[in-house]
Amino acid sequence: MTGVLPGLGWSVAEPAGMHHLVSLAQGPQRDPLGRDGRLHIEESIDVCQQARSITAWQQLYDQLKPGQFHGYLAEIWLDGMQCFEEHTSHALRQSCMVWPGSVWIGIPASSEHFARIGTTTIDADAVAIRGGGVEFELGTPDNFHIMGLVLARGELESCTSILHGEFLHLDNTMVLNVGSERMRKFTHFMRTMLQVAGDGSGQLLEQGCRKQLRHELLDGLAGMIDDARPNRQNIRRVDSAWQAVAKAREYVLDRSGEPTSIVELCEHLDMSRRTLQNVFHQTLDICPLAYLKSIRLNAVRRELLAPYSQYDSVQQAAAALGFWHMSQFSQDFKKLFGELPSASLARRALAKHGTAIHPASSQAPYGHI
């Protein structure tokens, strides 16, 4: 259930810890598939498939709103540096982890609605930075675009130290206000790079071109974060609200097989029912019961799709997450994901037999290879 390749030292704790991520070893220093300079494109109509689409990451996505999901990823590797653009159609709660020893820079390309990393809002002129090997939570709105750059942490620290004349102290999680014009220039540069990689000319297959492009990316990144200001404008009330939402999800998933009531949740979070309602409407514009149901539905779906799941039937997986009314469960499942739970389970069987299921084709902005 992760965006992970065999042999890269990554794992999802299983089966009880299926909904958590685990870092086991140093990650890849180069593209583990040997695709340097080649554009890799994934299009999906499934939130679990989207979570698996990016190379060498671990990710778990929870879809929070009903309707047919559409996702897109364009990715290229440049001798150990990973660059990508991702689009997701629906609001998501994401658990993410990039490989140890690396650092991820996330640059939102959607300005209408803000994303968040942990409890920190990523404003329209801000970028998110996160060190590898540690799980973090990302919340994204409907119709969201983000550019991503992953490289060795030491390379970024060394580059910025030389170019800025001082050492860049990277916290595990940072949100930096860099200015909209600098962001615009850098994202335009990255999109141009992806277009060149997908135009069929083969320029980026040449080592000299990849090396020059890496230099320009590092220089552009250093210029973008030069004089950047950490985002410290969060209101404590908002921070605590997001923390409560995250604790609620973990409480539900850690108690699989023991359905959680609102009374138990209020007691666990030490807040009243009205405060709980306000917290969820303030952060996600959804009531607590609807949110908890969507989290459990996503958890069942991961079990149905996972080849290593301990559950062999829809009824077993649903019961483990507290769904006792199978007819209602099937209706809720189809409303959220656009397919019956039996269809998800059938896709597990097809995957075991090596039968690929491709989403409906759409016109990708960078072409296909």
Rank of each mutant, 00 (worst) to 15 (best):
P28S: 15
P6Y: 09
G200C: 13
Q68V: 10
P100Y: 06
L194G: 08
S161E: 15
H368F: 14
T140A: 08
A152F: 00
I129K: 00
P230S: 06
C96S: 08
S240P: 00
V238A: 08
F69W: 04
V300R: 02
G27P: 11
Q277I: 02
P28A: 15
T192N: 10
W77P: 01
A25E: 15
G200W: 13
E135L: 10
Q310L: 12
S89M: 02
T55C: 10
P100V: 09
E267H: 06
S361I: 10
H113G: 01
H40E: 05
E135V: 12
I262E: 11
T260N: 00
L204W: 09
T192C: 03
A197T: 09
A241S: 13
A299K: 04
L92R: 01
T121F: 05
G179C: 05
M174V: 03
G9Y: 14
P259Y: 05
Y366H: 15
R93Q: 15
I162R: 14
F337P: 05
A317G: 10
R191P: 00
H87N: 07
A349C: 04
L340Q: 14
L176G: 06
H353M: 14
A124S: 10
C83P: 00
R214S: 08
F329R: 01
E42G: 01
V134K: 15
A13F: 07
G338T: 07
T192F: 09
T260C: 13
P100M: 06
E339Y: 07
D62N: 13
G198R: 11
E43P: 00
E303C: 13
D125V: 05
S53K: 04
H90R: 11
L321Q: 06
